[in-house]
């Protein structure tokens, strides 16, 4: 046995241990959650539940407001994603191609929305919303979600646009395509992976948003995360587990679907200030 480890070398062993720790740290809680969600009775010292059951799934899914919240959340996330694309893609293109003064500061200012404590920012926005009658409206929620998504949706596509070389656009002009056709046929398709990644981020972050929604959307707009808070408070642990599985599912599905677009390059490129 010893010779085996020695042949591996110390570095390999350290790497292996780190990997194991990493897996336990990240996948452990998830696994625990999955088991909890399908357990009937599970008392402390046992490694596995004493009995399995889907009764809490039934309970959660039979709640009307739960189902409603799921469809509401998906509706909001879809609208937020579409609106962010419409607003941010042209901005991203402008940042990438047109060198106007202070463009770097504009990009940087998007970071600021993430630098302040969220709640403080939301409260000050809420004051404004109150004046304009946006409290407790669908539009209000969409806007408050977009405060968060503006950053990904501008930075990542902007770097994607920047990676399209001028010569590639120019040779399309040369071949006879007007500026609009060049954008549709050359620039946009080449930047598509970056835009896709940003859109997925946007969708997921909107699905997950609770603070702003809570503040702006009460009392009528209950999204998944908000329902979850109340359910966790009122019912046993297992409901919380069931709910988190439901909440995590879209994330996992989207990320798997997007795997072909998500390359480290695109992500790293998205966060450069140029």
């Amino acid at each position: 046995m010893n010779w085996y480890f020695r042949s591996l070398g110390a570095r390999r062993i350290v790497e292996f241990v780190l990997l194991v720790v990493f897996v336990i740290f990240f996948l452990g809680p998830l696994l625990n959650l999955l088991i909890l969600a399908v357990s009937g009775k599970w008392q402390y010292p046992a490694a596995l539940p004493q009995s399995w059951s889907l009764e809490w799934w039934q309970f959660v899914l039979s709640q009307d407001d739960v189902l409603e919240s799921i469809s509401l959340s998906f509706l909001i996330a879809t609208v937020v994603t579409v609106c962010s694309i419409i607003v941010c893609i042209p901005a991203a293109y402008a940042f990438a191609r047109i060198a106007f003064p202070l463009s770097r500061w504009f990009l940087f200012s998007f970071l600021l929305t993430h630098a302040f404590p969220k709640m403080g920012l939301y409260v000050s926005i809420a004051v404004l919303f109150y004046k304009f009658g946006l409290m407790n409206t669908f539009l209000g929620i969409v806007l408050i979600h977009m405060v968060n998504t503006l950053m990904f949706m501008t930075w990542i596509p902007s770097s994607a646009f920047r990676s399209v070389h001028r010569a590639q656009e120019e040779s399309a002009r040369d071949a006879g395509a007007g500026p609009l056709r060049v954008f549709w046929k050359i620039t946009l398709p080449m930047a598509f992976p970056g835009i896709m990644v940003a859109s997925i981020f946007t969708f997921l972050s909107s699905l997950d948003e609770a603070q702003g929604t809570l503040l702006v959307g009460i009392p009528d707009f209950k999204t998944m995360p908000i329902i979850m808070y109340s359910i966790i408070a009122d019912y046993p642990n297992t409901t919380g587990a069931v709910f988190s599985v439901i909440l995590t599912l879209p994330t996992v599905i989207l990320l798997v679907a997007a795997r072909r677009f998500v390359s480290a390059d695109v992500l790293a490129g998205g966060f450069q200030v140029k």
């Binding site: 070389h165 001028r166 010569a167 040779s171 071949a175 050359i186 080449m190």
Partner: peptide
Amino acid sequence: TAMVFQSYNLWPH
């Protein structure tokens, strides 16, 4: 006219 650029001529997609 048609131009052949020094590099990045082709559309990779």
